[in-house]
Design a protein around this nucleic acid. Structure first.
Lengths: 132, 132
DNA sequence: ATGCGTGCAAACGATTTGCAGAGAA
DNA sequence: TTCTCTGCAAATCGTTTGCACGCAT
């Protein structure tokens, strides 16, 4: 055990999980994602979804927030960090730019904490759905 | 069955759970709280702790955030909506006051959306854990 | 005396893990 | 061929619930 090779294979399931996660507007549970994949005709096991999601989160490519009775996952934009305002009725989302960055730096100094990450989700009803 | 009475009894366990929750600095899991109570000599069942915690949360007297593998509880100022900066290492949390309210009103106007709710989670490392 | 609240233990649902087989390198 | 990844199913862990008894009212 002197030279340890990277060893990370590229498989269809891996891609499928990643894409399914990417195409989801907000946060999704592992189980939802699994059902979504199966419904889409992909052959993926539930355990694999969990494993991939965990790996993705460990790599920092995915964000996870714990939710009552389960964890929720979401893609984490590489380099750029942005949030969305999601319509609870139709799912349509607009990109938003909350003034958090400055405030976070400020808060970090005030509290002495080293802030590593944050999650912001804003939910509401879009004009079209509100009009109906 | 014409007049419906309030029916909310005062019991030792109820008090014990509430006090244990109050005396906890940050967020605590139901199980931790239970062990704490037992260790303190109180005769309380785990199920009761869960039930009390759920009731407290429903009444709005307690805050709950889902955590990997369990929910965490914390006393909550009634009526107020606030967020926490949670240390990923020790779990200690400080209350934070992000400048979101104004920005949300503004965004609502700009986008035409009716904003119903938002979720903000900030994670980091507290000074004590960072020093270790 | 009359229920509500509690305790115990079984039930539940979500997530993790072990093991054998399939496919990538 | 070799070794990683996958799939299935059993194991685990935290939380909820049913039922019978004790205690507050």
């Amino acid at each position: 055990m002197v030279g340890t090779a990277p060893a990370t294979r590229r498989t269809a399931q891996k891609e499928a999980v990643w894409q399914a996660l990417e195409s989801s507007p907000g946060f999704v549970s592992a189980q939802d994602l699994h059902q979504q994949l199966v419904a889409a005709g992909a052959s993926v096991g539930l355990a694999t979804v969990y494993r991939q999601l965990a790996a993705l989160a460990a790599e920092g490519r995915a964000d996870t927030i714990p939710d009552a009775g389960g964890l929720l996952y979401r893609v984490c934009a590489p380099g750029g960090h942005h949030h969305h305002l999601v319509c609870e009725s139709c799912g349509r989302a607009v990109e938003i730019q909350p003034p958090l960055e400055d405030w976070i730096r400020q808060t970090a100094q005030d509290s002495g904490y080293t802030i590593t990450r944050h999650v912001l989700e804003v939910f509401g009803t879009c004009p079209q759905c509100a009009a109906r």
